[in-house]
Design a protein around this nucleic acid. Structure first.
Lengths: 149, 149
DNA sequence: ATGAGTGCAAAGGCTTTGCATTAGG
DNA sequence: CCTAATGCAAAGCCTTTGCACTCAT
């Protein structure tokens, strides 16, 4: 049901996603995807600007919106001062986040599939009774990482 | 394990929390807590400013930080443009959020206690193996509400 | 050629800060 | 009395927008 792709497959998938959205897979967009692949975790916009030193802010911001619209990346909600993005779930696999409330570090975490499935069933049931239709869920563990404990 | 308090009990509890933190329970802070009690759900800073018409922005922002520091309120992370706060869990009871990705409406939702407990156990186990200590978790269902479906 | 994508700089919007005034204990 | 809290305005910071230039098809 769930799988992550290798780097080449990811680029191909993103190319297709953009193409279907009537967008081009330009060098800058490829560079952004490469950064997210290499990081393997959610990246702050501030950090992405540090990694891609030649990329103007406006280009990064605009392309993140395009990539999000095409479902290649998702914006991760955090309490950080700057925006945070990662590859979409169908590229990364379903997972959750451990967020350090002190230093802001984010690590990916996977819960047992059985429990995940049970949780989804329960959430679906509650949501249906409220007339709410679920697109996805986001689970964050907030606490202290090894360094900040 | 799970309980919500009545309004008077909440004010008393907040008073004690602030007192323990060496802070005073002033009129403005009480007004903020009243707004959150009345709303019964997470409130955007923008909306709180609308409710408390006489409160300057700086007073609201500063007091939210004080109340958060004293564990009376928590900042809810959203993709909204402005900050979002609600009463802390020990005042509200543990719950999760259904967030409409179109209109931004937030509803509280409670999952069966058994499942919640099982989930916590599993999360604790994963976190421990990473040297991460969990303070709390946040689970959001993202989708469409009845109106926006 | 022709519209999408890019770069630079300026504008926008939410949040924080400085400082003088007021109030709670 | 004395420090914390408040109010107003200005400054900060992240993000968005305008416009001219460049690139890919």
């Amino acid at each position: 049901m769930m799988s992550s792709l290798n780097n080449t497959e990811i680029h191909t998938a993103v190319h297709d996603l953009l193409h279907n959205a009537g967008q081009r897979y330009t060098d800058k967009r490829r560079a952004i995807i490469d950064i997210l692949i290499q990081a393997g975790k959610p990246m702050l916009i501030a950090d992405m600007l540090g990694k891609a030193k030649k990329m103007p802010q406006s280009t990064l911001y605009r392309n993140l919106l395009v990539l999000e619209e095409a479902s290649a990346v998702v914006r991760v909600v955090t309490n950080s001062e700057s925006g945070c993005y990662e590859l979409a779930e169908h590229l990364m696999g379903h997972h959750h986040h451990m967020v350090c409330s002190k230093c802001g570090a984010v690590r990916d975490v996977v819960v047992p599939e059985g429990l995940e499935h049970e949780l989804e069933k329960a959430l679906e049931k509650v949501a249906r009774s409220e007339g709410f239709s679920i697109d996805r869920h986001q689970l964050d563990l907030i606490g202290r990482c090894k360094k900040c404990k």
